[in-house]
Design a protein around this nucleic acid. Structure first.
Length: 1005
RNA sequence: GCGCGAGUGGUGUAAUUGGUAAACACGCCAGUCUUAGGAACUGGUGGCGCAAGCCGUGGAGGUUCAAGUCCUCUCUCGCGCACCA
């Protein structure tokens, strides 16, 4: 055996050496290569914020890097780029705080950032770097914006089309046959009408169709910063009021001129597209939720004696017969029209004014406290039954969703219920839950009799016990119960039954809990099927005074006292107990689930879901789809963003900056700070304003909505991406990033990509085939890493102390990738030890050594496992399996060079520097980065022996070590020979044997 | 409130998808060595019990020869939305 003198593992020297080598050999440079399949791996690019990285940031970069290296070794041509998202609030705020120009600040920050990244040994092709603030880049952001501006969404072809085509149609036939995603306040016009319009009028109409359009909206206004914020830039402050995420400044509402992108046009496609992509379930759910599709009915209520109509949107047309009033949002246009016609105009105006004073937060914080005011003299007519119902204005109805008007069905909607209770409005039940008594199900062919029943719950508050009845003959336990007689009210009937059956008479005023329940059962004593409609009435016992009860009743049952637990177990009631328990627990609540229709004329008896369409048709309503998602505000009153390339003309119309003149570069300004009056700093640039340029700039997410395309072809100055590059790379195969972008960036990128797809400018409908959601690394105190908590760990320090490879291995090993996890410098030593032990293994290598078959089997198993785990982003178990192999190798005398080379290959994606060093030490010429991933041999994985646990009645009593693939008979024979097994079987008969090959033998005695 | 997800040793976590629960690592305990270190190596380490053995994956039931895994109910935590009719 030869011994080698082994140097110690000097990570500083090794890492520096190989990082230099990779750069000098341009080893990560990527070009299209049609001989190889492509693989595009991308991590979300960062804001170069200037604070620098903490150890949480590289987690995603490392994961992407491991995956890239793995794919590269498997014969893929891997595109793995990195860049900077440097426009937007963070960069601007940093610049303001540090009193330097944002451009300068960005340059500095990028340098810091780059230096930190380089230390980690990431395999980026830096020749493709993009920077959203580079005019050569934002030229194309502006170009795409103009494309959006000059497009409309055709719902017939279901895609974006040039606005020119729309204008042509208008000139030929007006807009009557156009079905577009557009503003809702459009009127129908003919071609002649169109032609007679002025330029400005035409311009204004087209604006209602454009995918990028100008409008006014209430926005989140931050006076301190003098700027508008997106919803995801706002967080709850310490007092619960909204504040800006950066700087914690208060945020309020303000109406401003804005640019919007009509993302709602793509709502359906954004939902459907999710089915075909491999994203974590969680993120898909968040997006679906955010888009908030719901299918419902629009139903028109006439107003008695007036021409105006109330058009409501509801998903519950099945409850139309249960409407007891109608509610309009305070902002609804109809309210203004009705004002002159009502007798309490002052009250209503006062209420509306009061609502306006409330902030969004106030409106939200009072979720339970409903307020509103009646419109005196207005009666809406329910189209289903011609009933006249009152009309209210209430701020629990949102003007911005549906039609801004709703029908109120207090019996089946929590909010309407709360409102009705407060204002003492009638509650009319039209759905009852439907149950079939499983213990006494209806018998086919028997007569069906309908009955109205009452169940009586009486609690003795002194003991906490409930009155029950035990039926002597059947041994049933029930509540007191019985039929309701004609003309009798529920409470009286309940009292009567209580008295007759138990003799108790002094009880509190009764409460009817919830509505009826419909139940079907077979009444054996009468030989008939019954359909019962039952209510639950609740009393508390005042005293124990009793009247004598009839012999007849006495003979049938006796009174017993039931504990809460008894009730929870089981009683004999119509329908299952759960439904009664729900009423008992929740008290007086609206019943809003599914069931069977009642009190609705010919629709009675229908399942409520079936009734939706039928009742909608009956009142000539229309089935429509609504979304929660709103169009995206695409303007900021800031300096540091892409200029919007539009020119406002004196006549009020707008023209575009021609493509030749792009990019429209940001002008130099004296002060890039917000000027505080709601206008962008650009509004203070004389020259800019004189030329009519738009003074708003684009929001932070503009440049990031398409950057993944630019990496494919970053230097192209003829188009945002060239055809050749596009055809080769197609889309991002693996995208890695944080969950905080679920409803922002990840949605906007999909939207832009779909838009470009409509024009054939990209080849895939979805930009990111697979998305992995990065779990945050918390500080060791389980809090978000932040200066504020003093729990920040700097990666540079870690790299210096233990090396980039250790950092990489540790971050891969610490836990499941998508899971949040806290940093532990203590735990990291395990990863360092692991690498040191692999390093030391060099001493054991003998060139032509023949490894044992055990060792070989484990190697092949490990190759397989590591490959599969990297592919599925389970790096933690990949590392663990390499540790298992290492533990095994520690126990053998020598290892073959071949085996060690394979080991180094599979470790190299995680610890590239050390692996390069060892690789070179072993005399390999070419970089390990370019090595082929080893192939495993399935036949070698099977080791000769296998452990078979022998269970007796499901408990392991012995473990046999037997040859692999042994058949049942042989294993059984061996098992029966085993003394432990014999001991357990002694004198017993084996009733059943279960055998799973190579897995288990279970003997049942 | 609604939607989604998760609960496993002292800790991070694993479990071939229904087949020996706790692999791997941290920590801890004992030992070895010594140039005394916050080093390395070896062994041990879920709980109860002297032991045979019993118990054990948030809790309660169930299905099964067999349940961390499937079903029903329930509790707790995290995330998202939040009066969306």
């Amino acid at each position: 055996m030869k011994t080698k003198k082994l140097n110690i593992y000097d990570h500083l020297k090794i890492e520096k050496k190989w990082q230099k080598y990779w750069i000098s050999k341009k080893i990560y440079k990527t070009t299209e290569d049609n001989k190889k399949p492509s693989c595009y791996v991308l991590e979300m690019f960062p804001y170069p914020s200037g604070v620098g990285l903490h150890v949480g940031h590289p987690r995603g970069y490392i994961a992407g890097d491991v995956y890239s290296r793995f794919k590269r070794m498997n014969g893929f041509n891997v595109l793995h780029p990195m860049g900077y998202d440097a426009f937007g609030l963070p960069a601007e705020q940093y610049a303001i705080q540090n009193k330097i120009h944002p451009k300068k600040a960005v340059e500095e920050n990028i340098e810091t950032f780059r230096n930190q990244l380089d230390l980690i040994g990431l395999s980026y092709d830096w020749s493709r770097v993009v920077n959203t603030t580079d005019p050569k880049y934002y030229k194309w952001t502006q170009w795409i914006f103009l494309k959006l501006y000059e497009s409309w969404y055709n719902k017939v072809s279901n895609k974006a089309e040039p606005i020119e085509d729309l204008i042509n149609t208008f000139e030929k036939e007006g807009n009557k046959s156009i079905d577009a995603a557009c503003d809702s306040d459009l009127r129908i016009f003919t071609d002649t009408e169109w032609k007679s319009l002025s330029d400005l009028e035409k311009h204004n109409i087209l604006m209602k169709y454009r995918l990028a359009f100008e409008g006014f909206s209430e926005v989140n206004w931050c006076p301190e910063m003098g700027t508008v914020l997106a919803n995801d830039e706002i967080v709850d402050g310490s007092d619960g009021k909204p504040v800006s995420e950066r700087g914690n400044h208060p945020v309020e509402k303000k109406t401003l001129r804005q640019w919007f992108l009509r993302i709602t046009a793509y709502a359906d496609r954004l939902i459907e597209g999710l089915d075909g992509i491999d994203w974590s379930h969680h993120i898909k759910e968040i997006q679906k939720n955010w888009i908030g599709k719901s299918v419902g009915s629009e139903i028109t209520f006439a107003i008695k004696g007036m021409e105006e109509k109330i058009n409501v949107f509801t998903t519950r047309a099945d409850t139309l017969f249960g409407v007891t009033y109608v509610v309009l949002a305070p902002e609804a246009d109809l309210v203004k029209k009705l004002l002159p016609k009502i007798s309490n105009r002052k009250d209503v105006e006062k209420y509306i004014a009061g609502v306006k004073l409330k902030t969004d937060e106030d409106r939200m914080s009072t979720v339970k406290e409903k307020t509103g005011v009646i419109l005196e003299g207005i009666k809406a007519i329910n189209p289903a039954n011609q009933e006249e119902v009152p009309v209210f204005v209430a701020d629990y109805v949102l003007a911005t969703y549906g039609t801004g008007m709703v029908m109120a069905v207090p019996a089946h909607d929590d909010r309407d219920f709360a409102f009705a209770k407060k204002y003492n409005l009638p509650i009319k039940e039209v759905i009852v839950p439907e149950r079939i008594d499983k213990r006494n199900p209806p018998v086919e062919g028997k007569k069906i009799v309908e009955r109205k029943n009452v169940h009586v719950v009486v609690k003795n508050p002194k003991t906490g016990m409930y009155i029950g009845l035990r039926y002597k003959k059947h041994n049933w336990t029930t509540f007191p119960m019985g039929g309701i007689e004609d003309g009798e009210n529920l409470i009286d009937s309940a009292k009567r039954e209580l008295l007759e059956e138990t003799g108790y008479k002094n009880v509190t005023e009764g409460v009817v809990l919830g509505g009826q329940v419909r139940a079907e059962y077979f009444a054996a004593h009468k030989d008939q099927n019954r359909v019962s409609y039952t209510n639950l009435v609740y009393f508390e016992l005042l005293d124990e005074e009793k009247e004598k009860i009839s012999d007849e009743e006495n003979e049938e049952h006796e009174v017993i006292w039931l504990s809460e637990k008894d009730i929870n177990s089981n009683l004999m009631t119509h329908a299952e107990m759960d439904i009664w328990l729900e009423r008992l627990n929740k008290g007086d609540v609206a019943y809003i689930n599914d069931g069977v229709i009642v009190n609705s004329r010919e629709f009675n008896g229908l399942n409520n879901l079936d009734a939706i369409k039928k009742i909608t048709d009956f009142v000539r309503g229309e089935i429509v789809t609504k979304y929660k998602m709103r169009d995206a505000v695409f303007a900021r009153q800031r300096y540091w963003g892409e200029p919007i390339p539009l020119i406002h003309k004196k006549d009020g119309t707008i023209s575009v900056v021609s493509e030749k003149k792009l990019p429209l570069e940001l002008p130099n300004v004296k002060s890039y700070e917000a000027i505080g009056n709601g206008e962008s700093p650009l509004a203070g640039v004389k020259d800019w304003v004189e030329k009519g340029y738009e003074t708003n700039t684009m929001p932070g997410w503009a440049g990031s909505s398409w950057y993944f395309l630019r990496y494919m072809d970053p230097k192209n100055n003829k188009s945002f991406v060239g055809e050749k590059a596009l055809k080769y790379w197609k889309q991002v195969d693996m995208y890695i990033g944080g969950a905080e972008h679920a409803t922002g960036h990840l949605l906007y990128s999909r939207f832009w990509n779909k838009f470009l797809f409509d024009y054939g400018l990209v080849l895939e409908d979805e930009p990111f085939k697979c998305y992995k959601n990065l779990g945050m690394i918390l500080g060791s105190d389980n809090r978000k890493m932040s200066k504020r908590w003093g729990n920040v760990v700097n990666p540079d320090e870690v790299v210096k102390n233990v090396g980039a490879d250790t950092l990489r291995v540790y971050e891969s090993f610490m836990g499941p990738f998508e899971q949040e996890i806290s940093w532990s410098t203590d735990s990291m030593v395990g990863s360092r030890r692991f690498l040191e032990r692999v390093w030391k293994l060099q001493e054991k290598v003998i060139e032509r050594f023949v490894d044992s078959s055990d060792t070989e089997a484990l190697l092949h198993k490990t190759i397989k496992k590591v490959g599969e785990d990297i592919d599925s982003f389970n790096a933690n178990t990949a590392i663990s399996s390499m540790m298992i192999l290492l533990n095994h190798l520690d126990g053998v005398e020598s290892i073959s060079e071949d085996l060690y080379l394979n080991y180094i290959k599979i470790l190299s994606p995680f610890a590239p520097h050390m692996c390069e060093e060892i690789w070179a030490n072993l005399g390999q010429k070419k970089s390990v980065v370019l090595a082929d991933w080893p192939k495993y041999d399935e036949s070698k994985i099977k080791s000769a022996k296998v452990n078979i646990p022998v269970q007796i009645n499901g408990r392991v009593r012995a473990t046999l070590i037997v040859d692999t693939d042994l058949d049942q008979a042989t294993v059984e024979k061996l098992a029966l020979e085993n003394s432990d097994v014999q001991k357990w079987l002694e004198g017993k008969e084996i009733k059943k044997k279960i055998f799973v090959k190579n897995k288990i033998l279970n003997l049942v005695i």
